[in-house]
Design a protein around this nucleic acid. Structure first.
Lengths: 345, 345
DNA sequence: GTTAGCACTCTTTAAAGTTGAGTGCTAATA
DNA sequence: TATTAGCACTCAACTTTAAAGAGTGCTAAC
């Protein structure tokens, strides 16, 4: 038995209907509301076949059918066509508050959540290289010095340090120079103990301070390597009865709150910022997150520049409106592209 | 009829029991588990009085009593004695990750949530003055310049700017000097158009850049004036059946996610970092937040230095363990004091 | 003033019955 | 051979009824 055209049409009708209503779909409904002109009995026969093939199931004997993960998968891969999201240009909303990367991403999460009624996540971009561009020391007052660390890609970090001994401007300048001579262009792995010793031997005073600064640089770079995740609209999850079971809801919301498990979506899927913008759909268990086995996650990839990219994700019930979600994501990715190309935050 | 000693004892017993079990407390329970040696009938009479006085109510005719807000209030004000929280020293946990203020506060929220099983919030400190300490411009490359803005209280902000014309090192230095001469020590309100014009007339080139930088300074200061709120353990709310009603839960979690409504706790209560550390208890409607009418919020005040303070809050069901919560908060505030005094992040 | 005792109330839980949607199968039909 | 009408059957969901249990208020006795 194979999946002929009629079976496909029926399956599609079932899934579409289920996406809308969230209720099991019966044979009568399909018979009435499609242009197939078949009696419910015929539909029933076909449905039995589709069930045998694993695309749909009955929650219980006397209920209609609902799609299985396999069914959703087929739908997503071959049957849906994304709706073009003609929703108002989000670009202005985005830029308004987006004076910094962090804010921008947070804003993206927020906007998507508001527009889709699902939960959303946005990861910070993943940088390949984490080389030191330069370091700038400034004496803030007699005992405090501010270190501004600029990494490749213009990531700026600053730390304040307190010295036990009074600082002399000239010495701070010298230290600054030494730091740059030694560290400029280096990656974190390249800063080894030998180098540190050599550096220390060069700067007469402030041994203590140098150690602290080096530590700070190390953690700053490390930190930047960490992927952070912003989420929004977590409570939207509670709008869907099938996820509102107290235990399920708690688990999902915890996952969203803790965020660790969400980082794994970063490496999934292809990075191809082409037409499809690296859109990836994870259905149920495909998320590989236990608490999300009743959810689907749709991710898209944004790229800041060649090789530096992050993910945007929509988290909702399995019966989410894939067509709209994909459309909205593509729209958003387009706008992000615009911003990154012309108007770097 | 007034509240004699025996009534007080009975009320206290009822509340304590209810805090533990969450179930309405019957007369028999009180009769058995207190050292009052009174029969359940006597307790019943007293309970009827306590109900008339407004301290307890029956959820329905044939149920035990539960405390009213007025009852909780009396308990919190006069009957409870905070438990000393001998929970392991949190200081090390705190400092481990606390290389920056932001992280520290986030960590505080997290630790408290883990220790109390309630939701928590921590606000960023509220600064009185927002004066500019100094500005440091650095040319990153031919077309980009990094501005580091240091505000009083050593708050550091940085912004990257892109210039349309190629930058000359000397000119950038001159601009830097001019900016500092004009702006050092000024509050945001003091930067008026006249000043801006004057400043612009001084710097030959880079008119465009100056505008951008001034804008950035303005928003940076503004931003720092905004109070941000970190929350943690929001899902703990779902552990309490009386809050797990889908609608209530959604409302509460939304409030926690949106955070705006939480800022209002900042101004509540006295700021007295004495023994009590400005601890304030809001019961039910006292929170002034509609979605939290079934919750209680306990806040404490931390102070970084004279006049610069923020709030830490615990959000739980009305029957939260006030004694422990207050103890834990006092402990935490003590540790924060320690950190802020000796080891500024 | 305190208490034993009892009738009464009201929630909670379980069991039993009812309804309705939807199925699977069979036999007739095109 | 594919389709369909028809019907018996299943099972969740809802309603009704009954029973149990917790707890009260009141009265009368101590």
């Amino acid at each position: 038995m194979d999946l002929d055209d009629r079976k496909l049409k029926i399956l599609q009708a079932i899934i579409k209907n289920y996406l809308e209503t969230g209720e099991p779909v019966g044979s009568r409904t399909i018979s009435k509301y499609t242009d197939l002109n078949l009696s419910s009995a015929t539909i029933r026969n076909e449905m039995a076949d589709l069930e045998e093939l694993g695309y749909i199931v009955q929650p219980h004997t006397s209920a209609g059918r609902i799609p299985t993960d396999k069914g959703y998968r087929l739908y997503v891969d071959t049957m849906m066509q994304e709706k073009v999201d003609e929703v108002n240009n989000m670009r202005d909303d985005l830029l308004e508050k987006a004076d910094r990367m962090e804010n921008l991403l947070q804003q993206v999460a927020k906007l998507l959540a508001a527009n889709t009624n699902y939960a959303t996540m946005v990861t910070t971009p993943k940088y390949r290289s984490r080389k030191i561009k330069f370091i700038q020391l400034t004496d803030v007052d007699e005992y405090q010095v501010l270190a501004v660390i600029v990494l490749e890609g213009n990531i700026v970090k600053n730390r304040m340090f307190r010295s036990d001994v009074a600082l002399v401007k000239e010495e701070v300048l010298k230290l600054n120079l030494a730091l740059n001579t030694f560290l400029q262009g280096l990656d974190i792995e390249e800063i080894n103990i030998g180098l540190v010793q050599k550096l220390k031997s060069q700067v007469g005073a402030y041994q203590e301070l140098v150690s602290e600064i080096l530590d700070a640089i190390a953690t700053a770079i490390q930190e930047e390597g960490d992927i952070r995740v912003y989420t929004s609209g977590a409570t939207n999850i509670l709008k869907y009865p099938e996820l509102s079971d107290m235990n399920k809801a708690r688990d999902i919301l915890s996952t969203l709150e803790n965020k660790e498990e969400l980082t794994q979506f970063v490496d999934g899927g292809d990075i191809k910022p082409d037409e499809k913008r690296g859109i990836q759909v994870y259905i149920g268990d495909e998320t590989k997150v236990d608490s999300m086995k009743d959810c689907s996650v749709v991710t898209a990839t944004y790229e800041i520049e060649e090789g530096i990219y992050g993910k945007v994700g929509i988290i909702g019930p399995k019966r989410m409106d894939y067509e709209r979600v994909v459309g909205t994501l593509q729209n958003m990715m387009g706008q992000l592209d615009d911003i990154f190309k012309n108007n770097k935050p």
